[in-house]
Simulated scan of single mutants.
Amino acid sequence: MERRKVDILCVQETRWKGSKARSIGAGFKLFYYGVDSKRNGVGVVLKEEFVRNVLEVKRVSDRVMSLKLEIEGVMLNVVSGYAPQVGCELEEKERFWSELDEVMESIPTGERVVIGADFNGHVGEGNTGDEEVMGKFGVKERNLEGQMVVDFAKRMDMGVVNTYFQKREENRVTYKSGGRRTQVVLPDDWETTAEVIRETGRKMLGVSSGRRKEDKETWWWNEEVQNSIQRKRLAKKKWDMDRTEENRQEYKELQHTVKREGV
C-alpha cells in the first residue's frame, strides 16, 4: 500500500477470528471480521488519516463486510467480499450473493459504492450483450461464477472495472494452479486503474456539478410509489429463493421502475 500509494484496500481470506480493528503498522489500520481462524474472513485496510472518517462498519458475515466513510462531504461505501470457490455448494454461493445484495440495498441512493472482492470466477473475454456493465478484456471463457458477477452488476447498475483495460495475461492473472487462472482485481499500474475508473464513471454516470444535493425525504411518497417499492422487495425475495432468468428480469424491471419514480 505504501509503494503503490493505496489509501484503502479490501482484503479477503484473512482467516482472523473476531470482529475488531487493529493497527498493522506503517500508518495503516485493518477492520476485519471472521468466525473461523482456518477459513474465509474479510477486511478493509485504511490509511490512518482516514480512520476518523469512518461513520459505520457493517460486519455481515465472514464473506461480506462494509465501511461507510465521509470524505470531503462525499459518502463512500467500501465493500469487501469473498465469494465461495467453484467447488462449494450452490446454497453457500447463493447465501453470499444474497448477503451482498442486502448490503447494497441498505446503501442510500446517491452514495458512492466501491466493491473490492475476490469473486472466485471469471467473466470471460468479450462483452457482447453486456456492454453496459463490462469491457472486452476478461480472461478465458465465462463460468457460472462469472455469470453471477455480470448479473449482479446489471442488477446494481455497476461496472466490472478491471475488464475495461487491456493488459498482458500475466498481469491480469494473479493465481495459477492446474491450468486454472483467476483474474486479478487491480493491475500493477494504479494510474491506469484510476483513469479507467474515472473514464468508466464518466460513461456510466456522467459528470456532476460538484454541488451536493439535499438528502431525499420519504414524506412525499404517494401510494403508487409505496406499492412499487413493495413489489420490488417481493420480487427481490422471489429471486433470492429461485434464481431463474424470469425472476431476475422481473426484479431488474421493478428496480428501474422505482428509480424512474425518483426513489
Rank of each mutant, 00 (worst) to 15 (best):
Y164R: 08
E111Q: 14
L144C: 09
E223F: 02
H256I: 12
G27D: 10
N162C: 05
I107R: 07
F165V: 07
V196K: 01
K213S: 12
K154F: 02
V185E: 00
K17C: 08
G25C: 06
Y164W: 11
F50K: 10
S208L: 06
V44S: 01
V185C: 05
E246P: 12
V51I: 12
K237T: 14
A26L: 08
R180K: 13
W190H: 06
I8Y: 00
F152C: 04
N227V: 15
F96M: 12
V78L: 04
R231I: 03
I8E: 00
V123S: 02
E199P: 08
A153T: 08
G43K: 01
V123I: 14
A153V: 13
Q166Y: 05
R22K: 14
V42R: 01
V196W: 00
R172M: 14
G124E: 04
W239M: 13
G178I: 14
E199L: 14
D62M: 07
K232L: 15
E169P: 13
Q183H: 03
M158Y: 07
E145G: 10
V60P: 04
V44A: 00
G129A: 10
D242L: 11
E94C: 05
I229F: 02
K136H: 09
K29N: 06
E145I: 09
E141D: 10
L100S: 11
K154I: 10
Q249P: 11
L9D: 00
V114P: 03
P187I: 06
C88D: 10
G116N: 05
F152V: 05
K237M: 11
G87M: 12
E170Q: 06
F119G: 01
G73K: 11
V225N: 08
N40V: 09
T200E: 04
G34D: 01
E91N: 07
V207R: 07
V196Q: 02
E72Y: 04
G43N: 01
V113E: 01
V78T: 09
R15F: 01
G18K: 08
H122P: 09
V78A: 01
W221R: 10
G146R: 08
I115C: 07
V51W: 00
M148N: 10
R211P: 05
F137Q: 02
G81M: 10
G73N: 11
P108D: 04
D101Q: 15
N171M: 09
I8M: 06
